[in-house]
Design a protein around this nucleic acid. Structure first.
Lengths: 223, 223
DNA sequence: CGTCACCTACCGACCGTATGGTGGTCGGAT
DNA sequence: ATCCGACCACCATACGGTCGGTAGGTGACG
């Protein structure tokens, strides 16, 4: 478990062991855990890895947590809360449903790009949580995907969306194209988060809207 | 490792041990491994799990494989080969670029829905392979995403796609919305693979095409 | 002003278990 | 007589988790 097995020099402390106040360490722990889960996956990550990066011993982690799973829960919980807040506040703002959809997608994408690592952990390791805790985070109604579906449905009721577009499938399509960014976005890549947000939002809106609704939007922009 | 620790009754063989020809067992092994990787993830799955479902002992697996990682490689390799064949043959067919894009998306979605479990393993566990083997599968050009990007780019050159649409981002958007189905499609759900394919393809085409190109398509369908 | 109790943040040794992997063996079909 | 397909016993290692310490700080009390 430790390969440098010191011969128990009782009166010698670990050099790396900085003593920090609880709150600060807790934040650091969450950050490190997120990074390690990102790099190795939940099952592949060991508490040893995490402790090492904190300059701690594995056992000391249990001063802060009850179990490894708790740690994942905490990490994912935080990411989801934040992301959901961003999306649902964007969706709740002013404008017609298509405007709001466009703005929500942009907000979602930008947020995901700027929080790549936590987002990736959320999307990738959510399945590693046992069902009850997973649903405690998502809400049993899968609130996240509901936002997009509802926006499309509302737009459809106002005649802004083509017949034959199923709001549920459309919402999932949008969620797919936007969530996928965590797989390919690179901060040093050719596109900024804003550019990507604009592109994906435009494609989504064009994807569902009627020709008339699109023409009306053009007219407003042009004015 | 085994909780029913038989007291080493030397002359008693395991009853479950069906003896099967190599090829048949190998196929079975791939199938079972895929299923187990799907349920528990690569790191979470143990060779014990897999052996149990085959009615074998863990050690006996090594008659077929060299290592656990080999098994994942084999599984993922096969899925990718098949999926890529489907997609690239659909993309190569007749028609203008938008027709081909539409057909390719439908083919991709239908194939993913009908091969949910292998597809999920491919998308979820690809990252568990070490870089060289991963690239051996994808091809260093990420051929899969290239198909969609190239179709969009070709359509753009023919003026069928709106200005301002970046083929790269558009391709990734399409790949995202279509790959995402592995997360929500259920065979007993409200939509068939065909319906979903049609929907996603329609949204993608409308998402990138010019109004004129769309009108032209309508005219053809109406004729 | 000292000292004594008490808390915090962490150490370090250890446990039980499961894992990936090895190697020798052996019955049965060809 | 051979070889295939599988058994079985067995490593070494690494993991999540537990537990009894313990140095440094804080504050109350004499």
């Amino acid at each position: 478990m430790a390969q440098d097995r010191r011969p128990a020099g009782r009166s010698e402390r670990r050099t790396a062991g900085e003593r920090k106040p609880r709150e600060e360490r807790w934040a650091q722990l969450l950050e490190v855990a997120t990074q390690v889960f990102y790099e190795k996956g939940y099952d592949g990550a060991s508490l040893q890895d995490i402790a090492d990066r904190l300059g701690m011993l594995k056992g000391s982690l249990y001063y802060y947590i009850q179990s490894k799973e708790d740690l994942l829960f905490e990490v994912i919980s935080e990411v989801h809360r934040e992301g959901f807040a961003v999306v649902s506040s964007a969706a709740a703002g002013p404008g017609d449903p298509l405007d709001r959809l466009e703005r929500t997608i942009r907000a979602h994408v930008e947020h995901a790009c700027r929080n790549l690592v936590p987002t990736a952990v959320f999307l990738h390791e959510l399945a590693s949580l046992p069902t009850p805790r997973r649903e405690a985070i998502l809400g049993s109604g899968h609130a996240y995907q509901g936002v997009f579906r509802d926006l499309v449905a509302e737009a459809r009721r106002e005649g802004l969306v083509r017949d034959g577009v199923d709001p549920r499938v459309a919402g999932l399509s949008i969620l797919g194209s936007t969530n996928w960014v965590y797989r390919w976005f690179r901060p040093d890549g050719p596109s900024t988060p804003e550019e990507i947000g604009v592109q994906l939002a435009a494609m989504a809106v064009h994807g569902v809207a009627t020709t008339e609704a699109l023409a009306a939007r053009e007219a407003v922009v042009g004015a």
